[in-house]
Computed example of a mutant assay.
Amino acid sequence: MAKNAPVSKIPYMLLMICVVAIALLSYLIVSWPASKPQECPAQNCTVAPAPKHNVSEVSHFIGRVMDSYSDLAYAEPTTPKFIPNDSIWEESLVLNRTGSPLGVRIRVYDSNLTLQSVFVEGPKPLSISADEVVAKGVVKLNGKLSCSENKTRVFVFFDLYCPPCLAAESKVEELKQKFNDSVSFEYKIIPTHSYDLVQKYGSNVTRALGYLLCARVQGKLDELKNCSEDAYKKHQEIPLTEDELIACVSSSSLNTTTLDVCMSSYNIDMNRDWMLAETFSLVGTIQTVPSGAPVITVDCQYKAEPAYAEAAICYAHPELKGCK
């Protein structure tokens, strides 16, 4: 009977050695201390400087710059970016009022928050406006307190002989309907385009504005204004005659006796409206965009052209039903 061959112990020993080696290697991998990032020599390390001013401060200043450069009031404000290597803030805007987009860059020094440059065509302003653009076409007036009470007050600065004013009337009427319950629209009569007509046509030019002011006193402004607008649109930039004005008065529910008394002193009310327009920099020696007529103000704190009136109302009062 043949004997079994002796079993070799060598494979078992090799297997045990491999198991021990793998266990030891795993232990070393897990327990080996994490390598620390190599610190660069001081002379080779550069740390980006932190800006002195924050985004909010820079945005306010750039808003003032935008109000100082004519059409820039009609660009959409964006968030400025800090450029550490130059210690400069830069904001890129797109201006599109004529159908051709125009890129604009505004650069501001971080050290003292002053203007470095504005890459846009047009004359450089003599000084930076204190008012600031807060939304496309919407300007926040510096230092003005709210004049609204139960309803949001919107002043509409208007001149009967101002073609843009007449063109904007449909927009104002649309807003009256939309915000009827929450916004009070009040017309302020200021002679802007009318001044150009006085030299040629005489007192009838301002007489028409006087009738509007006196109709406002009686709460009948819309009646007389609508009739006067319809009559003037039939002209070729020629002011209404006295007969045409009287015809509009006769077709309204105005008290003519009260009207005649008022017409003897309507200049007082016109001066009041003019001075109010001056406080908003719409007329006078200091004017900021937008200016003249037609312009609307909201709460005595914001101003805009009628095309941007809804944006101004909703910026000031996002809680209004018409803004949601």
Rank of each mutant, 00 (worst) to 15 (best):
M1V: 13
V7N: 06
M16S: 13
V19Q: 10
A21Q: 05
A21W: 01
Y27F: 14
Y27I: 12
V30E: 10
W32A: 13
P37G: 06
C40T: 04
Q43C: 00
T46N: 07
V47N: 07
P49Y: 03
H53G: 06
H53M: 01
V55I: 15
V58E: 03
F61Y: 15
M66F: 07
D71V: 11
A75M: 03
T78C: 07
F82T: 14
D86V: 07
W89V: 02
L95S: 04
T98K: 10
L102D: 10
G103P: 05
V104G: 08
V104N: 07
I106A: 06
N112D: 15
L115W: 05
Q116E: 15
E121P: 05
G122M: 05
K124C: 04
L126Q: 08
S127H: 05
D131G: 03
V133T: 14
V134N: 08
G137S: 06
L141V: 13
K151C: 03
E169D: 14
K176F: 03
K176M: 02
Q177W: 06
K178S: 07
F179I: 06
N180M: 02
S184G: 09
S184I: 03
E186P: 02
E186N: 08
I189A: 00
Y195P: 02
Q199M: 02
K200P: 04
R207H: 14
G210R: 00
R216M: 04
E223S: 12
N226K: 13
D230L: 13
Y232K: 03
K234T: 14
K234S: 13
E237Y: 10
D243Y: 08
D243Q: 13
C248M: 11
S250M: 06
S250E: 15
S250Y: 02
N255F: 07
T256N: 10
T256Q: 14
L259W: 01
Y266G: 04
D269R: 09
M275H: 12
L276H: 01
E278T: 09
F280M: 12
S281C: 06
L282W: 13
V283M: 08
I286S: 06
T288W: 05
T288E: 01
P290F: 06
A293G: 05
V298P: 00
Q301T: 12
Q301A: 10
K303S: 12
I313C: 06
P318D: 00
P318A: 01
L320I: 05
K324P: 08
